[in-house]
Amino acid sequence: SSQSQGISSSSTSTMPNSSQSSHSSSGTLSSLETVSTQELYSIPEDQEPEDQEPEEPTPAPWARLWALQDGFANLECVNDNYWFGRDKSCEYCFDEPLLKRTDKYRTYSKKHFRIFREVGPKNSYIAYIEDHSGNGTFVNTELVGKGKRRPLNNNSEIALSLSRNKVFVFFDLTVDDQSVYPKALRDEYIMSKTLGSGACGEVKLAFERKTCKKVAIKIISKRKFAIGSAREADPALNVETEIEILKKLNHPCIIKIKNFFDAEDYYIVLELMEGGELFDKVVGNKRLKEATCKLYFYQMLLAVQYLHENGIIHRDLKPENVLLSSQEEDCLIKITDFGHSKILGETSLMRTLCGTPTYLAPEVLVSVGTAGYNRAVDCWSLGVILFICLSGYPPFSEHRTQVSLKDQITSGKYNFIPEVWAEVSEKALDLVKKLLVVDPKARFTTEEALRHPWLQDEDMKRKFQDLLSEENESTALPQVLAQPSTSRKRPREGEAEGAETTKRPAVCAAVL
C-alpha cells in the first residue's frame, strides 16, 4: 500500500463515540455579560531565545476518518491537505487489492476528492471536503458537486459515486458533537469551532446549510445566566432586550441578528466578523496607526449616533465590543453586545450600574441610586476607546495605585505619557480631550465629534464608502454560481449515467 503517514491498516477498528472529540476555545468574540476587562498594560515583551531549542513535538491529529468498508483504511489527519483517489500521487490511494476487485472500484476517479483545513476566524481551523469526481462525492447523502466544497462537521458520513455507498465517517477532533444542539438549529446550521467564551456562554462559528455562508452563533446558558443575574427581577429580559434591539436596528456599522432560537439555552445567530475584536488588534499591534484609528472611530461614531437617534444607549462600549470585518488594516467595524443597552424612556434617566469599570463615565460612578444619566455615557466610553487606539494603553487603570480607579475617572485625570502622545496629531488629542470631559453637559456629542476637524478627511470617508460598496456587492452575490457537472467518465454501479447527480441539489457548496 502507498498510504501516507497516519493511515492504519485495519478497517475493522472499533469506532469511538463522539464524546472523545476535544474542545477548543479562544478569547471572547462577544459576550452578553460584562466580565473583568482584559488588561492592556500587560503586553508581554519578546522573550530571549533559549540556548537549546526544544524538540519539535509530534503533531496531534486534528481529524480521524473511520473506514466503513473492507479495502479502505482508517486515517489520522495530521497534515493540512489529503487527496483521495486511484492515482498513485494521492496521499490516500485507493490501491488495496481487496478494493480493486470490487465492482465499485471502476466508478472512483483518479482524484476523487480531497479533505483539507484552512485558517478561519480567531486563527481556528475549518475542515472542508472538495469534490473532484465525475460520479460524485456525497456528505450525509447530499451531493457536494464537482469543483465545489463544503465544510465537514463531526460525524459526517462520506459516500463515493452513490449516496448509499458510504466509505468513511469523519471525526473532527477539535469540535463538539452536533447532537448536543437543538434540532431546529441543526436543521438550518452546521455548528463548528468555538470563537470565544464568557461567564454565561460562548460564541460558535457555524455555516448556513442552504448557502454555506459563515455566521456566529452566540449561545447563552439559561442556567448560568439565571445564577449570574439572580438580582434582576427577570434575567430573561436581558436576552430578550438584546434580541428586540438587534432586530430593529439596520446600520452597516451595527451587528445584524439573523436568527434566534429559544431552547434549553438561547441561541442568537449573528453575522460573522472575520477580523475578531478591536481589543485583540490593539494588543497585537501595541497601538494602531492614526489613519486606521480615524477610519475605525468614524464608523463607531456613525453607529452610536444611529443608536442615540433611535433612543438607544449602549452602556457597555469597549474594544471587546467592536468587531472587525476582516484581518486587513482597512476594514469595516461593527458594534455588538447589546445586553446592557437601554431604550430611552421619557425621563432619559437610568440608575442601574452596569458596564465595565474602566470605560464607565464619571456620572455613572457618582450617581448610583441618587440620580440618572443619559446618552453622554456612550460618548465618554468612545473617548476611552479612542485614547486606547491612539496610545496603546488605557487612560484609567486600577494599577495606578496612588489613585483609585473611581477617583481617576470622576476627576477626569487620565494617565498622559508625553513621549507616547508625541507621535499623535494635535487634532486627534483634542478630540480625545473633548470626549473625556467629566461634566456630561459639556462633553462632545456624537454629532459634535463628527464635525471635529480631525474627522474632516475626505480620503478616509471615501475609503469607508468603498468598503461599504464591497460589502454590499459580496452579500448580494449568490453563493453557488454554477451547477454541478453531469458529465460521466465512468458508469455508476447499477444505474444510468447522471441518474442521481442531477436530482440532488449541491447543498452548502461554494464554487472555488
Rank of each mutant, 00 (worst) to 15 (best):
T358E: 05
N374G: 13
V507R: 10
T370N: 10
A428T: 04
L360D: 02
P505T: 04
V364P: 01
F396D: 02
D459V: 09
E320D: 04
A263T: 06
L481P: 14
D262P: 10
W421V: 03
F387R: 01
L323F: 06
I245Y: 03
E497V: 12
K281L: 09
S367P: 11
Q305S: 03
F279D: 02
L390Y: 03
A361D: 01
R315M: 01
M273R: 14
Q305R: 10
N259I: 08
E244K: 15
S404R: 15
V377I: 04
L382E: 05
T292C: 01
L429W: 06
Y298L: 06
A476T: 13
G345A: 12
R375T: 14
H340V: 01
T475C: 05
F396V: 12
K427S: 14
E271C: 14
R315L: 01
L450A: 10
K247P: 15
P505S: 13
F464V: 08
M300F: 03
I335M: 14
T370G: 06
M350R: 08
K427V: 02
L324H: 06
C331V: 12
L288T: 07
R400K: 10
V282R: 03
T336G: 05
F416L: 00
L307W: 01
C253R: 05
K433Q: 01
D430L: 14
L365V: 13
W380T: 04
L353M: 06
R400N: 15
Y414R: 12
K463W: 04
N259W: 09
W380L: 02
E290H: 04
K318G: 01
Y306W: 04
N374P: 03
V269T: 08
L270V: 15
L353Q: 09
I243P: 00
E447R: 08
K248V: 08
E426G: 11
F416I: 04
E290S: 08
C379Y: 12
S326C: 12
L435M: 13
E500R: 11
Y296K: 05
Y298Q: 14
W380K: 01
K503Y: 13
E346P: 06
A263P: 05
D466V: 04
I313H: 01
K503G: 09
E500C: 15
P478Y: 15
N472G: 12
G311Y: 10
A476S: 02
F279N: 04
L317C: 13
P478V: 03
R315Q: 03
T445R: 00
E320L: 03
L332V: 10
Y296R: 04
L365W: 14
K258T: 07
L450V: 05
Y296G: 01
L344V: 09
K247C: 15
Q479L: 08
P505R: 04
K406T: 09
R462P: 00
V403R: 14
I268K: 04
S367W: 15
D378Y: 01
P453R: 14
K406N: 13
W380M: 00
E398M: 11
I388M: 12
A361I: 01
L272E: 09
L349D: 14
G494Y: 00
L324P: 03
N259Y: 11
I312D: 00
P362K: 00
C389Y: 03
F338D: 00
F260P: 07
P491M: 14
E458F: 14
E500Y: 11
D407N: 12
V511P: 02
P395L: 06
K434G: 13
L278K: 01
N259Q: 11
E426Y: 12
Q465T: 05
S487C: 05
K247G: 13
V432W: 09
E290K: 11
E495I: 14
A303S: 09
K434S: 10
L360K: 07
I417A: 00
L332F: 10
L301G: 14
L481M: 14
L349T: 10
S381V: 01
P319S: 10
G345V: 07
